[in-house]
């Protein structure tokens, strides 16, 4: 009896589920996405609430209290200048996440525009863009980033741009690939046959279906951006002010004392590993949720 009532919902009661909502639901069922998401949310909260969490000023040193091992006063110990490592890591998360998000945003924007131009217009535009992309991809990423930083000078924004430059060709290639695959998709041909053309065809019919892999790649790129930022910092190409709490710079400041004070390298290292792991897990979970091959 109840079955009959349930089987005939009125039109207004039926709720329609879009593919994005559907993908999100899948993601909530994926353990890697949940763990990754939790780690990222944790770091974001730490970054936002840094002033309330950190017990000390991260830039203020107390030479009388340098080299302290982890203890109740200084949870993660202190460094050569006597700065509190815990506070520096907490504030460092702002820098790291900021650089990662900025670089990926810049990279995706430019890469997506280039990829869309190449994949949609084909012809000589495609040839020029894709050959340039090939050239950029032939240069090792870190080397390219170093070159960009040494050209632009040191600084947070410069580091973000350098990492973005490394990512641009990857994003361009991914979007172009998905657009090419879509060009002959029946629903795109159908849209053309109905009279849809130009920007409308790209924006309404092709991009929404091509963007999935790009989103996944962007998430994974956040992970590499964290590593790249740390690497640049480690190489002394991070923010110019030595007091700036950047995880990679913290590593390079301390590796000489590694035998005496393991904690100095250990905690920033753990922070980097966790952030990278979080983005990677989240990216993997998203890939599973969005991948069209798992659909239907």
């Amino acid at each position: 009896m109840t079955d009959v009532a349930v089987a005939q919902p009125t039109a207004s009661q039926e709720r329609s589920v879009g593919l994005w909502t559907d993908a999100f639901r899948r993601m909530r069922r994926s353990p890697s996405a949940i763990i990754g998401g939790a780690i990222i949310v944790f770091f974001v909260l730490v970054a936002l609430l840094a002033p309330f969490i950190a017990p000390y000023d991260p830039t203020r040193g107390d030479l009388g209290a340098s080299y302290l091992p982890p203890g109740p006063e200084h949870w993660f110990g202190t460094n050569v200048q006597g700065q509190d490592v815990f506070s520096r890591i907490v504030f460092g998360s702002r820098l790291t996440l900021g650089i990662a998000v900025m670089s990926v945003t810049i990279g995706v924007s430019i890469g997506a525009v280039l990829g869309a131009l190449a994949g949609f217009f084909r012809g000589w535009i495609d040839a020029v863009i894709m050959r340039s992309v090939d050239i950029m991809l032939s240069i090792p990423g870190l080397l390219l980033a170093i070159a960009v930083v040494s050209w632009l000078g040191r600084g947070v924004l410069q580091v973000a741009i350098a990492i973005a430059v490394v990512n641009v060709p990857i994003f361009a290639r991914i979007l172009r690939g998905s657009l090419l695959a879509l060009r002959d998709a029946d629903y795109v041909v159908a849209a053309r046959s109905v009279g849809v053309g130009g920007p409308s065809l790209l924006v309404r019919h092709m991009l929404p279906n091509a963007i999935g892999p790009l989103i996944v790649q962007a998430t994974l790129a956040l992970a590499t951006a964290v590593v790249d930022a740390a690497a640049l910092g480690f190489l002394g190409l991070g923010p110019p002010d030595p007091r700036t709490p950047e995880w990679g710079t913290m590593l390079s400041d301390t590796y000489r004392y590694l035998t005496d004070a393991v904690h100095l390298a250990f905690f920033p290292g753990i922070a980097i590993v966790l952030a990278v792991l979080g983005f990677n897990l989240l990216g993997d979970g998203m890939r599973e949720a969005i991948d069209p091959r798992l659909r239907r």
């Binding site: 593919l19 029946d186 629903y187 041909v189 159908a190 109905v194 849809v196 309404r204 929404p208």
Partner: peptide, 25 residues
Amino acid sequence: MQMIFQDPYASLNPRMTIGSMLAEP
């Protein structure tokens, strides 16, 4: 002139509701 396609799974844009698809032309 219009066309009806073979594969009903491939010929509808998965990101568009039937309504917006029909409104487009």
